[in-house]
Structure formats: C-alpha cells, structure tokens
Nucleic acid binder design. Structure first.
Lengths: 173, 173
DNA sequence: ATCTCTGCAAATTATTTGCAATGAT
DNA sequence: ATCATTGCAAATAATTTGCAGAGAT
C-alpha cells in the first residue's frame, strides 16, 4: 500500500468490526491490493494478481464477495466502462471524481467539477428526489487515439466504424 | 406508434438500406413496439410483449440482435439502471436527456440541463479528449419512497439498509 | 439469385449459491 | 464455543453464436 496505509487499513478493520464481519487473510490481501494498485481493476484481474503473487490462496468467489463488501463500505467504487464491463477503483477519501473513457483504447481519465455536482443536485431536487449518488461517464477519443485516427482517415469515418448512431442524422435516402 | 410515426419509420428503413440490412417483419415489430411504448423496457420485456400480442413470432435472440441494430442506429438508447440491469428507451430526435433512478422502487425520471452538458464538454476538452457521448445517471429516492420511508424510520437507517458506503465516514471504532 | 435473417439449441461468460470444513473472535 | 468465511463445484442468469432453412431485395 502506498498512500495513507495504516490509517485506511484500520478503518477497514473498524468497518468490519462494526458490521460483525471478520478480518481474514483473504480479505486483507484483496484490500491491500486494491489500495496498492493505481489502476482500475476487474474482478478477474484482481483474482489473477492474487494468484500470481504468493500468499494465502483466494478463490474467485471470495474476490466477488469481498469486493462487494469493500464497495458497500465505500472503500472502492464500481465503474461501468461500457456495457457489461465493470471495473473498480479505490477511494482514498479524496474528493469524488468522474471519468472520461476513450472509446478506442479504453484509457480512463478522471476529472472533478463542483459545478456539475451542484447542478446534478439541483435537478434531482427539482424532481422531488433526495439524491444519494450519481454516475457520470463521458465517452470520447483520447488525444493519442485522435492523432492516430487522423493519420488513417477522417474522424467521422472512424466514429462510424465505432458504431455511432447515424440513423437519425440524414433525411435523405 | 404515437408520435411522428411514418417519418421515423421511414428513417429506419433508410438506415437499414444504407447499412445493407433488411427490413423484416421481426424488425418492424420490434421497432414499432419500441416507439409505441412510453416506458423503458428490457430485452426480456420486449420479448414478452411481442409474444403476448399476435403477429409474426420473434425469438429472444432476434430481440437481442435487433435492439443492437436500433441502438447503433441511434433509434434507441441503453440505460444501465443499476449493476446489471439494462433498459432501453426510444429516441425521438427530441433533445437528449439524462435520468434519475429511485434506489428503492426503480422509478426513472428524466431531466435535461444544458449547463451540465456544456461543463462536460469543457472537462473532456481540458483532458484533450474529443467527446463523443456521455452517461449521466443520478441515484436517489423518489418523493413517494421518501414519504414511505419516513413513516417507518429515519432516512439514514434506510439508506444504510440500502447498502450505502459507511466505512469511510466515522473515525471512531 | 444472392446474401441477410431467423429460430433453435448449444455454448459462453459472468456471477451466485449450497454446503461442509476451516478459521476468526 | 460460536458464528462467519472459504473453496469447491454445481447452479443460475444473461447473452452470444453456429448452422440450416426461410425470406428480403
């Protein structure tokens, strides 16, 4: 673990205690890995990591179960990349942020915008909702891919290949 | 179909032609149903609707395949409700909008905010991305559910039951 | 006539679950 | 000692796919 280690791990222990859950070697390994890496990870990747490195074995089922615990506790967050793909990232208590995902290479960047947050709350409130959370994910093409695509053809062609919505655009047959 | 029928259906036909796809009775049924209903629907629900009503039979596989075509064409949009649940809604060429989903009952409301859209674009641009789309989904508790929950207990208790992140909140053991 | 679609059933993929043994408090 | 957790393998659930026959242009 790289940042804030003992503090955050103690919180995890406290959390478990408070919820009458137990600290096990498996949970510790998963927790530590989640905070050690600085990438987004899927269930499968976490499972692979732990299998490669040595330490108490961790089954896939346990990874699923533990990530769920971590998510409930607010230690990690799930991000849905595109339909079907779920990746996680740890939360360090640092300010919340949202993501921009590159449609081409999958690269994920983060950003944070208080104005957007405020406007979201305003809109929920206007509809009578108590807002409890949000998911904001921008899709786009990252600087690197934009450059590459421009070498090969027009951006529009490429967007088309990516399966963009083009049915509503033209009136002509 | 209720709104703008012939026009939108002709667009669909054009789209198919342009992509060398064929108009089949199955595709027509699915398309028309998608624009007839004013609800969000899942693959399964669409399948059930078509099975109940009469007309040319449509298999589940075809529903999957056709909804994908419709999505690519921009005729419908997929919304991911919560992890795993995907529902669709038709697009009428009307302004884009986002959603607020009730955590308790699943009710979905829509809103639209140009300021948010502009800020999104700004953030993507700042990171060097060409923005191609976005997904914004607020979670919350709808007016009805808020009322019900207040009858039974504190909102906080209930949020806790819903599995809110509570691990990072308190420092104390 | 040609090339796409459809339905079916099998295959895949992702995730969940029952249960007996193990381990944490 | 008690009660939660683990691993396994079986069970689910959701979606995809191969293929032969049917259908659209």
């Amino acid at each position: 673990m790289t940042i804030d280690d003992p503090a955050i791990e103690r919180r995890f222990e406290n959390y478990l205690k408070r919820e009458s859950l137990k600290m096990t070697p498996q949970r510790r390994r998963i927790f530590e890995k989640a905070f050690e890496v600085h990438e987004h990870f899927s269930v499968e990747r976490m499972y692979e990591w732990l299998k490669e490195e040595d330490g108490p074995a961790v089954s896939r089922a346990t990874v699923y179960r533990t990530l769920e615990v971590l998510e409930r506790g607010g230690f990690i967050e799930a991000i849905e990349t595109r339909r079907g793909e779920v990746v996680y990232e740890h939360v360090l208590g640092h300010a919340h942020h949202d993501h921009v995902v590159c449609e081409v290479c999958g690269r994920i960047e983060e950003f944070q915008d208080d104005e957007i947050e405020a406007l979201q709350r305003k809109n929920a409130y206007r509809l009578g909702f108590v807002m409890t959370g949000h998911l904001l994910r921008l899709s786009g093409i990252c600087p690197t891919c934009v450059k590459e695509l421009q070498l090969e053809g027009t951006l529009e062609e490429k967007l088309r290949e990516l399966g963009g919505p083009i049915g509503l655009l033209d009136e002509s047959a």
